[in-house]
């Protein structure tokens, strides 16, 4: 399918597909424009509010139009957000590298069920974790008994290998023609060389995709930080974002107003922007692998 789209020019449309009429094209454009607006408007509103003066942000207009950098200035004046960003970047980079490393090597081993004794059993064991979660408290006890409370490792280790990603990569590897691997073996390549020189170059798409999945997962993971990090100076961005934005959102959590007033809306929105933009910036680079990577792994198998 992907091949068809890539090479298919309009002139080469199949005979049964006529050029849509102007009316249909207009209707399509309109529908797409509406969808895009619905998607983009909230994001635009967040960005605009973060750059607005507090008065303009509360005025209730369609988009605040004033411009002020005060919200960003007040955030970066303290070290909290800067430090949280550093923690998040560190955890995301280190976590993604480790995750990809372990997922790929495990998946490769499990893709060769005939050569690796016991690999079927290991595969089922891993699949089992997709069906049953351990629950919050047992997980906490595990992390605590490993001595990882208040350690950055508690943000990485619990979700380091995702069973779903592992299956996707394994299925991708299974599709690589066995003849290819066999010829490499005849040429004298060992398993490591086969993995590095033959399998990985052929799997760039799927690896880019799972790397992105992992990176987004690490970047957004607030729950592990909430449970395992007691020291607030170690909190990553999502946990800090939670403190900035969630307070006062839910009626049921508002029980006491003698607390300080929540940060102004402009500051909240600025924190949202700071938390969203870095990971958003990664997307365009991985986008082109997306369809191919996930679908190939998922459909064939």
């Amino acid at each position: 399918m992907a091949e068809v789209y890539r090479t298919g020019r309009r002139a080469e449309l199949p005979a049964w597909r006529e050029r849509p009429s102007a009316g249909t094209q207009f209707a399509k454009a309109l529908v797409i424009a509406v969808i895009v607006t619905v998607m983009l408007y909230p994001f635009l509103y967040v960005v605009a509010s973060s750059f607005a003066t507090p008065a303009a942000a509360n005025s209730g207009g369609l988009l605040p139009t004033s411009f002020s950098l005060d919200a960003y200035r007040s955030i970066f004046a303290g070290d909290v957000v800067t430090r949280a960003l550093l923690v998040s970047v560190g955890v995301t980079v280190a976590g993604t590298v480790l995750s990809v490393l372990f997922t790929v090597s495990t998946a490769y081993g499990l893709s060769r069920t005939k050569d690796v004794p016991g690999s079927k059993a290991a595969l089922y064991l891993i699949l089992l974790t997709m069906l049953f979660g351990a629950g919050i408290i047992p997980q906490y006890l595990l992390i605590r008994n490993l001595g990882l409370v208040d350690s950055y490792w508690s943000l990485i280790l619990p979700g380091m290998v995702s069973a779903f990603n592992l299956v996707v990569v394994r299925n991708f590897f299974m599709d690589i023609p066995a003849e290819l691997l066999e010829s490499a073996r005849i040429d004298g390549a060992g398993e490591l060389r086969i993995l590095l020189r033959i399998v990985l170059p052929l799997s760039r798409a799927v690896i880019a995709v799972i790397a992105l999945f992992y990176a987004v997962g690490y970047w957004n993971n607030f729950f592990n930080a909430m449970l395992y990090l007691n020291d607030s100076t170690k909190w990553p961005m999502p946990q800090v974002l939670n403190e900035y934005v969630l307070q006062g959102g839910q009626l049921s959590t508002v029980t006491d107003l003698h607390q300080a007033a929540p940060p102004s809306q402009t500051v909240q929105m600025a924190v949202v922007v700071i938390a969203t933009v870095p990971i958003l910036a990664v997307y365009p680079f991985a986008q082109r692998y997306f369809t191919k990577g996930v679908l190939t792994g998922a459909i064939k198998g």
């Binding site: 607030s232 100076t233 403190e243 006491d256 929540p262 940060p263």
Partner: peptide, 10 residues
């Protein structure tokens, strides 16, 4: 319990 953004390290 806390209702505000986390405190600075210093």
């Amino acid at each position: 319990i806390t209702y505000t953004p986390p405190p600075p390290a210093n």
